[in-house]
């Protein structure tokens, strides 16, 4: 008997190991009949309240929440679209391409503002700008920069302080980092100057916002550029300060889609509806900046086919080359 249990545990461990998730958690419904598999790029810690409220509202549905990086979300889902029921990612461009390529189910249910929906298949449900997060200790007695230009000045003035202690996304690995970088580059040339400076300071490159915030909190880096402010706020850490640059902000929406090949369509739609409705109810339990569907359209990255532009092979190759030239020195 013991051997059998050991064998089962071994197998489970093997299966889990094979998938190699950043995080994986099942939220069981009280009277669970089916399990919705949610593939997401958002950390479980910030997303859990939304799922818990869903499970308590819908006891017959369990939610298996699988977390991985944005680029990996896209890769895994494309590889096996029937395996997952709901896909959540902050990389809007990759999500839009999934919908464009016909992976997303077209739903006629959701009543959601036009600017946050694409083809009735891709729905934005959180909205937040990319932020600069600093460790207050590094700016003790110095003015905190409020624009990218000011940040460039600050980094230039004290290179000794920041050498090896600045961080940003590795756009080659992170889908969200790539989205932020391309949108920044589109908006202003300041982005490239900043990247030159960061490159000169031997910037640390991260796959995910969470890691960056961790290193920032522990003082390993002093400045993180283009991170999600909601992660920093979720830590409730006095040492950190979130700066929303006042020159221009790159605002992204977390988007959700239901797989076209899902066999649990009603449950998946219910989950999606719950995410959209939570924003309408201004659910205070969620640490995520949920999108209020009654609010006016904000200056977000538009959900339109132009997002496909930087995903073009040639375009991406050119952009990454320019980025590497600037950052890797």
């Amino acid at each position: 008997m013991r051997k059998i249990i050991a064998l089962m545990l071994c197998c489970l461990a093997g299966v889990a190991g094979a998938q190699d998730w950043e995080d994986q958690k099942t939220f069981a419904g009280a009277a669970s009949e089916i399990t919705v598999r949610v593939l997401s790029s958002t950390d479980t810690s910030v997303f859990a309240p939304l799922i818990q409220s869903f499970v308590s509202d819908n006891p017959s549905i369990s939610v298996e929440y699988l977390v991985t990086g944005t680029a990996d979300v896209d890769r895994r889902f494309r590889a096996d679209p029937a395996e997952f029921d709901v896909v959540i990612s902050s990389a809007m461009d990759l999500q839009l391409k999934l919908a464009n390529d016909g992976f997303a189910a077209v739903l006629d249910t959701a009543d959601h503002p036009d600017w946050a929906v694409w083809r009735q298949s891709l729905f934005g449900f959180t909205i937040e700008p990319a932020a600069i997060v600093i460790n207050r200790a590094a700016f003790d007695g110095v003015a905190v920069p409020q624009t990218r230009q000011a940040l460039i000045e600050a980094l230039r003035t004290r290179p000794d302080v920041f050498q090896g202690r600045v961080g940003t996304y590795d756009v080659r690995r992170s889908g969200l980092g790539y989205l932020f970088a391309t949108q920044d580059a589109r908006a202003s040339d300041t982005y490239w100057r900043l990247m030159e400076i960061l490159g000169g300071l031997n910037v640390r490159l991260y796959c995910c916002s969470g890691d960056m915030i961790n290193d920032l909190g522990e003082g390993r880096i002093a400045v993180a550029y283009n991170v999600l402010g909601s992660y920093a706020k979720a830590r409730i850490d006095d040492r950190l300060q979130v700066i929303l640059p006042s020159d221009f902000q790159t605002t992204m929406m977390r988007t959700v889609l239901v797989s076209d090949l899902t066999e649990k369509r009603p449950a998946a739609i219910a989950f999606l509806q719950h995410l959209l409705a939570s924003g309408a109810q201004k659910d205070a339990r969620a640490p995520l900046p949920l999108l209020d569907p009654t609010a006016d359209a904000t200056a977000t990255i538009g959900l339109d086919p132009a997002l496909l532009t930087y995903l073009d092979t040639l375009k991406r190759r050119n952009f990454l080359k320019a980025w590497e030239d600037a950052v890797i020195q």
């Binding site: 929906v117 083809r119 589109r186 339109d304 086919p305 132009a306 532009t309 073009d312 040639l314 050119n318």
Partner: peptide, 20 residues
């Protein structure tokens, strides 16, 4: 080498979100 202009796909945006 083709540096795809952002406006190219942007102008294909329609009210019913046509795929490209």
């Amino acid at each position: 080498d083709l540096d795809m202009p952002y406006a190219a796909f942007s102008m294909l945006n329609t009210s019913s979100d046509d795929r490209v």
